[in-house]
């Protein structure tokens, strides 16, 4: 029932700008990393860092940097601020806020083993995997399973249970 409610909500509030505290978003992003499996070649050993790349505001990047050094799935968390650079090579998770998304999607191509997280309407259609949205007072997120597959990412069902699953291919193609 919640899923149904969740499905109907984004349609109503799609236009509204997402204005959620950055701290919560950073914690969510970190939690996503806990529930997603990366392919072996992208994250070969425990020594390899789990690289969080942020093409976002200074405040959010700083919030992420607070989590730097933590261990997720045995890997050390590394925070990289992309800034205006469009080079995302080596990033496992890339957060792209709406201010950077325009330029991002112009020059950056989809990369294998790279989780794209954003927070704008149409992000999934642009090729994103997880997209934040505000449902009333609550920060929620939607996930494109297809895009995840395309990016060779395996998302835990426990995460999927909490997310609004969107068919980005169909929806994106139509729009």
């Amino acid at each position: 029932m919640a899923v149904l409610v969740a499905l109907s909500l984004p349609v109503r509030s799609a236009i509204a700008e997402i204005d959620a505290p950055d701290k919560l978003k950073a914690a969510y992003i970190l939690s996503f990393a806990k529930l997603i499996s990366w392919p072996q070649d992208v994250l070969p050993s425990k020594n390899a860092n789990l690289v969080f790349c942020a093409a976002a505001s200074e405040s959010l990047t700083n919030e992420l940097r607070n989590h730097s050094g933590k261990s997720i799935q045995g890997h050390r968390v590394q925070i990289v601020a992309l800034g205006k650079r469009g080079d995302s090579l080596g990033c496992h998770i890339v957060y792209i806020d709406p201010q950077h998304s325009f330029r991002w999607f112009e020059r950056v191509k989809r990369m294998k083993g790279q989780l794209w997280v954003g927070e704008e309407e149409g992000f999934i259609n642009k090729g994103g995997v997880i997209n934040f949205y505000i449902d009333g007072e609550k920060l929620r997120f939607e996930i494109s399973v297809e895009h995840a597959k395309n990016s060779s990412l395996d998302i835990s069902s426990r995460l999927l249970n909490l997310a609004k699953i969107v068919d980005s291919v169909k929806g994106g193609a139509k729009q």
């Binding site: 919640a2 969510y28 939690s31 806990k34 835990s156 426990r158 995460l159 909490l162």
Partner: peptide, 17 residues
């Protein structure tokens, strides 16, 4: 185990379910 994600993402509804 099942409720862990719900707690992590503060999803009480799912937890209750």
């Amino acid at each position: 185990y099942n409720v862990a994600a719900s707690v992590a993402f503060d999803d009480a509804v799912t937890a209750s379910e």
